[in-house]
Write a protein that binds this DNA or RNA. Structure first.
Length: 153
DNA sequence: GCCAACGTTGGC
DNA sequence: GCCAACGTTGGC
């Protein structure tokens, strides 16, 4: 099993959206970056995902979610009404992928970016690197253990 | 709201 | 294939 981290603005899709419907899969769509997409395609059923809240008041890791459906064509790319519409996509050759996720657990307290930056195990993680915009990234076993220890979960 | 850093686009 | 211009991300 692999571990990942995904960024989201909590206004858009945050941990509380997963808490509100704990048994309902939420489709993670709208990813429009090739590197992030390629990681999504590598996700396997049951993989753990740290959910990171970005561009908001309380920035940091809010909890864990889990992959309950592996990559499939992101329907929003075909929808002219959608903000994520991509005219270059066709049904035969979709450019973008979505996965479905469900709640694993919400952390008792948000693990702030400030703390994440202090963890030596995360020094090489794109998450804490200045200017990094990657929204889906793999998390190593060592990194995952450090995050969980710091979260006291 | 600002702005640095980045990925993507498109002209050449 | 290069690279300037542009739009977006995301912390502060």
């Amino acid at each position: 099993m692999n571990t990942w981290l995904m960024k989201s603005e909590p206004d858009e899709c945050g941990i509380d959206d997963f808490v509100a419907a704990p048994d309902t899969p939420i489709r993670w769509d709208g990813v429009r970056n090739y590197q992030a997409r390629n990681f999504m395609q590598q996700m396997q059923l049951g993989d753990q995902v740290f959910l990171y809240h970005s561009s908001c008041k309380d920035i940091g890791i809010a909890g864990l979610i889990r992959v309950c459906r592996t990559a499939y064509p992101d329907p929003t790319q075909f929808d002219p009404e959608s903000h994520y519409h991509d005219a270059r996509s066709t049904q035969d050759k979709p450019r973008w992928q979505a996965v479905d996720l469900v709640l694993e657990k919400k952390f008792a307290a948000l693990l702030p970016l400030e703390i994440l930056k202090q963890l030596p195990e995360l020094a090489d993680c794109p998450l804490v690197k200045k200017g990094n915009r990657l929204s889906v990234m793999p998390i190593s076993t060592t990194e995952a253990a450090a995050i969980l220890a710091a979260s006291k979960e």
